[in-house]
């Protein structure tokens, strides 16, 4: 059984039984709610050939039968039949909001690791310059690329689409995108993050930003006000250029602006641990569930490190059962 592959928890006997019962209840709820068919590699998918079938992702044809090439769930949309894979790498779709890490600064572009089968490309021309002016990118801009993003920086961007040569391009044409600082990056399996209207969340209570990247990279960091301090930076920069780059004063300013209060750091860790617990249990992630987990840990008066313990994990599983059963009741 695939119990808790990330957290190797020492569960005692009662906790084991409670967890098993909670998972059993989840299974019952899921089987009641839908009759989706799971398939494995090389299983035949029953289709009605008279209606005409369009074979989608994860399927192939063999002797006139539709056969799955992945393990997952069969989905049918009109004539289209496809297999939705569960544990797999991220599959980009245009407009997805993603979080990635810079692996390389190359000619006019950055390469980003985004948990896809290739690195994504963010062109210098497809992002807003710090000064916010629309103009052609000059050779000087190209030389100053490292002042915008360096290797191993964490960046938030949007998927622009596939180019003709099959490479994946990103864009960051808004103030909300850009470098992410002062926080934690978590990686979860991408199937746990659903595409929604809103992926940027500002948790006002803790002054924390939460970005649920579609690629399973989750950012928890200190709240940044509207992310338009870039313009200010530019003012500073132009002044500095006038004063021939007084780097030392910049360092001091940086230190001041990078100070994060202890409470904020603690709430970042708390939210991050909530995400860790949920993803190790394999529950889908959204803000409500994450914040509910955080609230519960606070109401139980748990320390941050205790959130990764066995007891809390079992409680979260039980909580999820309650939440889902109340959801299904409401529907009826």
């Amino acid at each position: 059984m695939r119990e808790l592959r990330d957290l190797q928890l020492p569960l005692n006997q009662t906790q084991k039984i409670r967890l098993r019962r909670a998972l059993q209840q989840l299974q019952d709820l899921a089987s009641k709610a839908s009759s989706s068919a799971s398939v494995t590699v090389a299983d035949t998918i029953p289709v009605n050939h008279e209606d005409g079938v369009l074979k989608g992702h994860g399927t192939s044809e063999l002797d006139g039968e539709v056969v799955a090439t992945l393990c997952g769930v069969v989905e049918r949309v009109n004539k289209l039949v496809y297999v939705r894979a569960l544990r797999a790498r991220y599959k980009p779709e245009t407009g997805d909001i993603i979080v990635g890490r810079v692996t390389e600064v190359a000619q006019k572009r950055w390469r980003l690791e985004i948990n896809f089968s290739q690195d994504a490309i963010l062109m210098l021309s497809s992002m807003n310059l710090p000064d916010g002016i629309q103009r052609r990118r000059t050779a000087v801009d190209e030389l100053n690329m490292r002042s915008i993003f360096e290797e191993s920086d964490v960046i938030c961007a949007e998927v622009r689409g596939f180019q003709h040569d099959g490479s994946l391009h990103l864009q960051a044409r808004s103030q909300k995108y850009g470098k992410l600082e002062r926080g934690q990056l978590l990686t979860v399996p991408p199937y746990l993050v659903k595409r929604r209207k809103q992926h940027f969340h500002h948790v006002e209570k803790f002054a924390v930003d939460l970005i649920l990247g579609c690629n399973g990279f989750i950012w928890v960091g200190e709240h940044v006000e509207a992310r338009d301090n870039m313009v200010e930076d530019q003012d500073n920069k132009s002044e500095q250029q006038n004063s021939k780059l007084n780097t030392r004063s910049l360092r001091l300013e940086e230190q001041e602006s990078t100070y994060t209060p202890v409470e904020t750091r603690q709430s970042i860790c708390r939210i991050a641990n909530a995400v860790r617990v949920l993803s190790s249990l394999g529950f889908s992630l959204n803000v409500e569930v994450i914040m509910g987990t955080v609230e519960q840990s606070i109401s139980l008066n748990l320390d941050i490190h205790e959130m990764l313990g066995a007891e809390f994990c079992v409680q979260i599983a039980e909580r999820e059962v309650e939440r889902r059963s109340s959801l299904t009741k409401k529907r009826r």
Binding site: R2, L23, L29, S38, V41, R87, L281, G282, F283
Partner: peptide, 18 residues
């Protein structure tokens, strides 16, 4: 092997929920 894979897929699916 097929049994193991199917069981694993089902488990991932019901744990994820809707």
């Amino acid at each position: 092997i097929r049994e193991v894979m199917l069981e694993n897929t089902k488990e991932l699916e019901y744990r994820r929920g809707i």
